[in-house]
């Protein structure tokens, strides 16, 4: 099994997964509507009551972005689980193809979907009055952060999909991903929460990513949050990538 066949197999699988992503109009529409609706909801409905200093839209954009990424990853988790409960994976597994190519296909499709959603969040945010102060260099750095985060959460979701096996269970996992941002600094600062919750909010992986993005875009202090964010993402990847490969490659006990 050479590197070139691994690349070749992965390319075929990427084509497959991306094609599949765009053939489910309902899911695709939901994925596109979600950022728009959430943005309007948080800025115009909740935004007036929020006191985060300055315009709420300037505070909330990173959190919404991660919320949408969580939704996107949930989709990935479900589609991996669907694959696993379908006969086609048995065929892939019994073929002389590179073991991780199926996963690579799912991940690339997931990243593509997420980047589309990210672009949409940013576009809508700008329309409703988001005014980032970022320099071009900050923008490039922020795109890097988003990519790293999306990659990590996609692999995590794919691993969960493999582990859980059924689309229903994977759906449950995606609910967790969707709720995680609420207990972070995505929508309100952590110091407005009761102390026991604040501990979780300050130390869960989404908070450093949010703080880093907010810092890059709005000039709020970043400090060591960038390193913590990077460490979380790299850590998640370091566990998920090998785990997914071995979960997919094993001769199942089913």
């Amino acid at each position: 099994m050479t590197l070139s066949t691994a690349v070749l197999d992965s390319r075929v699988m990427v084509t497959r997964s991306v094609r599949r992503s765009f053939r489910d109009p309902e899911a695709f529409f939901t994925a596109l509507m979600l950022p728009v609706i959430l943005m309007l909801l948080f800025v115009y409905v909740f935004g007036g009551a929020m006191n985060t200093g300055g315009d709420y839209v300037n505070y909330v954009v990173p959190g919404l972005l991660l919320l949408c990424a969580g939704f996107g990853a949930g989709t990935t988790s479900v589609s991996v689980a669907q694959d696993m409960s379908n006969g086609i994976v048995d065929r892939f597994r019994s073929m002389p193809i590179h073991g991780s190519s199926v996963m690579v296909g799912h991940i690339v499709a997931s990243v593509v979907r997420n980047l589309i959603a990210t672009a949409l969040v940013i576009g809508v945010a700008l329309l409703v009055g988001w005014r980032p102060t970022a320099s071009p260099l900050d923008w490039i750095a922020s795109i890097g952060v988003v990519l790293l985060f999306v990659l990590a959460i996609s692999w995590l979701a794919a691993t969960a999909g493999l582990l859980l096996g059924s689309p229903e269970a994977a759906n449950g996992f995606s609910m967790i991903l969707m709720f995680l941002p609420y207990v972070s600094t995505a929508f309100v600062p952590a110091d407005t929460m009761p102390s026991w919750m604040r501990g979780f909010a300050e130390h869960q992986p989404l908070t450093p990513v949010i703080e880093t993005l907010r810092g890059l875009w709005m000039g709020t202090p970043i400090d060591h949050q960038a390193w913590i964010a990077a460490a979380w993402c790299v850590g998640i990847l370091a566990v998920s990538v090998p785990a997914a490969s071995s979960l997919f490659g094993r001769r199942t006990s089913r």
């Binding site: 197999d9 497959r16 053939r23 065929r91």
Partner: peptide, 27 residues
């Protein structure tokens, strides 16, 4: 080659896409 109890095809893709995908995976 394995033809499993549950058809081992991608239901979201077309017949042609399925065949081409598998042909490419056979290199």
């Amino acid at each position: 080659s394995l033809t499993g109890q549950y058809a081992a095809v991608d239901e979201v893709l077309t017949a042609e896409e399925n065949l081409l995908m598998m042909a490419q995976l056979r290199h």
